[in-house]
């Protein structure tokens, strides 16, 4: 059931537009950190940043996967259903978007949709809440959208993720794209980005 204290976008048209532009900038310039301050109040454990991205992109034509923490709270599903009309799926392999609040317990990237060679766009975009994003961190990034190299820090950073992202890169043009959100900021790692740890 809908949490009475929760709200959707203050201005559905212009909030969605400005959030989309920030997301597009973030994906076009992998690893760069962008201010992201949603004007809404999601229910329970759903961070405002993930909620705002979901409302910007998801609707009745998309399927959203929730990690176990979010899935356990019926107010989250009810809020997404009410404000986005989106379908919740329990199969990460058929999700257009995956909402992740516990990066340590996240299924391996290979569990999500990577698209196929003819339609690599039929893939999952992971929206992951983390504690902190920092410029000049341990991750050294290169690839399209990056002039030479860019450094990014994501905390917490599960050790296995570096290897999974390298495997994701080798699938290209198949693969998943990742958006990381912390309080007030986002950064993205599309499938094109090569990553190593400094």
């Amino acid at each position: 059931m809908l949490d009475a204290a929760s709200t959707g976008f203050a201005d559905p048209v212009l909030d969605a537009q400005s959030h989309f532009r920030t997301l597009m900038d973030a994906l076009a310039r992998p690893g760069s950190i962008h201010a992201f301050r949603p004007r809404l109040t999601p229910p329970g454990g759903l961070p405002a940043e993930l909620a705002a991205i979901a409302l910007t992109l998801a609707d009745h034509e998309t399927a959203v996967w929730l990690d176990p923490g979010l899935a356990a709270d019926p107010a989250v599903s009810a809020w997404l259903a009410f404000h986005a009309g989106t379908r919740i799926t329990v199969d990460p392999g058929e999700a257009d978007f995956a909402l992740v609040t516990d990066i340590g317990a996240m299924p391996p990237l290979a569990a999500f949709a990577a698209g196929d060679d003819a339609y690599p766009d039929r893939s999952t975009t992971l929206l992951i809440a983390v504690d902190a994003l920092s410029a000049g961190g341990d991750l050294v990034l290169s690839g399209p959208g990056i002039e030479s190299e860019r450094r990014l820090g994501i905390a917490p950073w599960p050790a296995a993720l570096t290897e999974q992202l390298a495997a994701n890169r080798t699938l290209f043009p198949r693969g998943v794209d990742l958006v990381f959100a912390t309080s007030g900021a986002i950064a993205a790692l599309p499938r094109t980005t090569r990553i190593r740890e400094a």
Binding site: A16, F20, E61, D96, P120, P144, R191, T192
Partner: peptide
């Protein structure tokens, strides 16, 4: 807005898969 969301999703995929 529904049309914009659909186009925006396509744009984000396009950015993630350059030239596709």
């Amino acid at each position: 807005e529904q049309t914009k969301r659909m186009i925006r999703r396509a744009i984000l995929k396009a950015v993630a898969i350059p030239g596709y």
